[in-house]
Amino acid sequence: MFTIEHEFDATVVTLIDEGDGLPLMGDVVITAFEDCVAVEQTDPDTEETVRITLSMTQLADLAAALNLPEGSYRIDRTPAPKG
């Protein structure tokens, strides 16, 4: 299950673990700003929150990596020639 909320300066997606496996993991909160994306998860046992912030370039690389086989890659970000 997940929720999506649009706030003034960000979109917040919360992923809620409803899996059959035990133990369930804490909710994952993804906050998308104009220039970065923050991913947070609170450990249900310690109540400690871990936050990872990704630049938009890192996020694009992650999205690309989800559909590629094992290996090392570099994305060419030079604009394509017009015409």
Rank of each mutant, 00 (worst) to 15 (best):
residue 17 D to G: 05
residue 35 D to Q: 07
residue 21 G to W: 06
residue 34 E to Q: 15
residue 60 A to F: 07
residue 79 P to W: 10
residue 38 A to F: 01
residue 37 V to K: 13
residue 52 I to F: 13
residue 14 T to N: 11
residue 20 D to G: 13
residue 31 T to F: 01
residue 73 Y to L: 00
residue 15 L to I: 05
residue 20 D to R: 14
residue 76 D to C: 03
residue 11 T to K: 12
residue 63 A to N: 10
residue 19 G to K: 14
residue 32 A to Q: 09
residue 44 P to N: 06
residue 30 I to T: 00
residue 45 D to F: 04
residue 63 A to P: 02
residue 77 R to G: 00
residue 70 E to K: 04
residue 58 Q to V: 02
residue 71 G to V: 00
residue 50 V to Q: 03
residue 81 P to A: 09
residue 59 L to A: 12
residue 59 L to N: 05
residue 55 S to I: 10
residue 44 P to H: 08
residue 24 L to C: 00
residue 14 T to H: 13
residue 1 M to K: 12
residue 10 A to Q: 05
residue 29 V to C: 03
residue 20 D to I: 01
residue 28 V to P: 01
residue 61 D to K: 09
residue 9 D to N: 15
residue 66 L to I: 00
residue 35 D to W: 09
residue 42 T to R: 09
residue 44 P to Y: 12
residue 38 A to N: 07
residue 79 P to D: 10
residue 79 P to G: 11
residue 37 V to I: 14
residue 52 I to C: 07
residue 61 D to A: 06
residue 69 P to S: 09
residue 48 E to K: 14
residue 71 G to Y: 12
residue 56 M to Q: 14
residue 37 V to A: 10
residue 27 D to M: 00
residue 82 K to F: 03
residue 52 I to A: 06
residue 45 D to C: 05
residue 33 F to K: 11
residue 32 A to T: 03
residue 30 I to R: 01
residue 7 E to Y: 02
residue 8 F to S: 14
residue 56 M to H: 06
residue 78 T to A: 08
residue 29 V to Y: 03
residue 73 Y to Q: 01
residue 9 D to L: 10
residue 71 G to W: 14
residue 43 D to K: 01
residue 16 I to S: 08
residue 26 G to E: 00
residue 42 T to D: 03
residue 83 G to R: 07
residue 22 L to G: 09
residue 23 P to L: 08
residue 63 A to M: 06
residue 68 L to K: 08
residue 56 M to F: 07
residue 2 F to Q: 09
residue 75 I to K: 15
residue 46 T to F: 11
residue 64 A to H: 11
residue 17 D to Q: 11
residue 65 A to M: 12
residue 16 I to P: 10
residue 56 M to R: 15
residue 2 F to K: 09
residue 13 V to T: 06
residue 19 G to C: 07
residue 13 V to E: 07
residue 58 Q to E: 15
residue 68 L to G: 00
residue 73 Y to H: 06
residue 75 I to M: 13
residue 39 V to I: 12
residue 65 A to S: 13
residue 24 L to Q: 04
residue 61 D to C: 02
residue 34 E to C: 01
residue 61 D to E: 09
residue 21 G to R: 11
residue 26 G to D: 03
residue 21 G to Q: 06
residue 76 D to I: 00
residue 77 R to C: 00
residue 13 V to G: 05
residue 65 A to E: 06
residue 25 M to N: 15
residue 30 I to E: 00
residue 13 V to L: 14
residue 57 T to P: 01
residue 49 T to R: 13
residue 34 E to N: 05
residue 76 D to W: 02
residue 2 F to M: 05
residue 69 P to R: 13
residue 72 S to H: 11
residue 58 Q to D: 12
residue 40 E to G: 01
residue 48 E to N: 12
residue 64 A to F: 04
residue 56 M to Y: 02
residue 21 G to L: 10
residue 16 I to M: 14
residue 23 P to C: 07
residue 19 G to I: 08
residue 28 V to D: 04
residue 41 Q to F: 01
residue 5 E to L: 08
residue 47 E to G: 00
